[in-house]
């Protein structure tokens, strides 16, 4: 019987009222929003309680995430520390200006005083060939051998401390000094610092790549963990679907589970990095002390204790979303 072609037979029973239960939901938007919010709170709390109920399993997953996150974060902090170190070294940059061998000591001092008047030079230091030889003899242990030399082979030297320490200013100053009379050679003593700096750039890229790979790893670990959680609640999901639960309703508790795992792992990672920094700070301080430096390790920014859990929580959320999405498609009610 085609529905529209033939009118229905007037059966007595169809004359009855339509039956209870409105076709459209009888709930106001406000009620719906309130219940939606309530379900979020319930899901978040319930997910946390479920995790707390299995402390060992949860702890191990959290630790895996924490280690995977602590590795790039820790390396990043170390690189940042070294960067600070090279900057402070660059601040102490100086140029060694070697003068022609035959320059007299008076002329050397006069030259140094002249240069000191330049705007770009903070101060100068004169090292005469005799002083240099003296120092060299003491430090090298070649004392007697050097005595055998007929002449002092060391050139007069002026050490120039510049006002500015950025590479361009140093290069300009180095060039200008090189053009001066009786200057034999100008040596910039920050070349290696710049090389180190460039190496740190490479290191930073590597850490970024590592962070990306490990973040992906964290997401996969969480996907798998959530998959197991879904498996253990398969029955519940089926019932929820049969009584009219939306995909969002089914998904919600697992999203919170993923978020808590991630956030817990992130927090733990921040703590691990901070512990590692404390552990290293003793030896680093001692080392800095030996170099007469007041350098000390920078610790983790306090914001990291919020941002890292947040970031990892979002990773967990995404992992959970992917895991549940796949299972929602796979799992349709198998009831009959």
């Amino acid at each position: 019987m085609a529905r529209n072609a033939t009118p229905r037979q007037p059966v007595v029973r169809t004359a009855r009222r339509r039956g209870p239960g409105a076709k459209e939901g009888s709930l106001s938007l406000r009620d719906r929003l309130r219940s939606w919010w309530r379900h979020h709170l319930d899901s978040a709390r319930d997910a946390l309680i479920r995790l707390a109920a299995r402390p060992v399993g949860t702890g191990m997953t959290v630790l895996v995430i924490a280690i995977a996150l602590a590795l790039p974060v820790g390396l990043g902090v170390m690189l940042e520390n070294m960067r600070g170190l090279t900057q402070s070294w660059q601040g102490n940059a100086h140029l060694s200006v070697f003068l022609k061998q035959d320059m007299a000591e008076d002329a050397q001092r006069e030259r140094a005083d002249n240069w000191k008047a330049w705007d770009s030079i903070r101060r100068t230091e004169v090292i005469t060939p005799a002083e240099a030889l003296d120092e060299y003899q003491q430090m090298s242990g070649f004392g007697n051998a050097l005595d055998a030399l007929p002449d002092n082979p060391l050139p007069p030297l002026i050490i120039v401390y510049p006002e500015a320490s950025d590479p361009d200013a140093l290069d300009a100053l180095s060039e200008r000094l090189g053009e001066q009379d009786s200057v034999d050679q100008v040596q910039l003593d920050v070349q290696w610092v710049r090389r180190l700096d460039a190496m740190l750039d490479v290191g930073e890229r590597l850490v970024s790549a590592l962070a990306l790979a490990l973040a992906l790893g964290v997401m996969l670990v969480l996907m798998n963990t959530i998959r197991l959680a879904i498996e253990s609640r398969r029955e519940e999901i089926t019932v929820v679907k049969i009584v009219g639960g939306t995909d969002g309703f089914v998904r919600r508790p697992f999203l919170y589970t993923g978020f808590w795992y991630g956030a817990g792992g992130g927090l733990m990672a921040a703590v691990l990095v901070q512990i590692a920094l404390w552990w290293l700070s003793g030896p680093v301080d001692r080392l800095a002390g030996l170099y007469d430096s007041s350098y000390s390790l920078a610790s983790l920014h306090p914001g990291a204790f919020v941002l890292l859990p947040l970031f990892a929580g979002i990773l967990g959320l995404m992992g959970a979303w992917l895991a549940v999405g796949r299972h929602l498609r796979e799992m349709d009610p198998r009831f009959f």
Partner: peptide, 22 residues
């Protein structure tokens, strides 16, 4: 198809929670 991880009340309440009742 009842869920044994919750009370009778909570089992029966499930459709209402889903529908968003207070």
């Amino acid at each position: 198809q009842l869920l044994f991880d919750r009370s009778v009340f909570d089992n029966v309440a499930l459709p209402l929670i889903i529908a968003g009742y207070g």
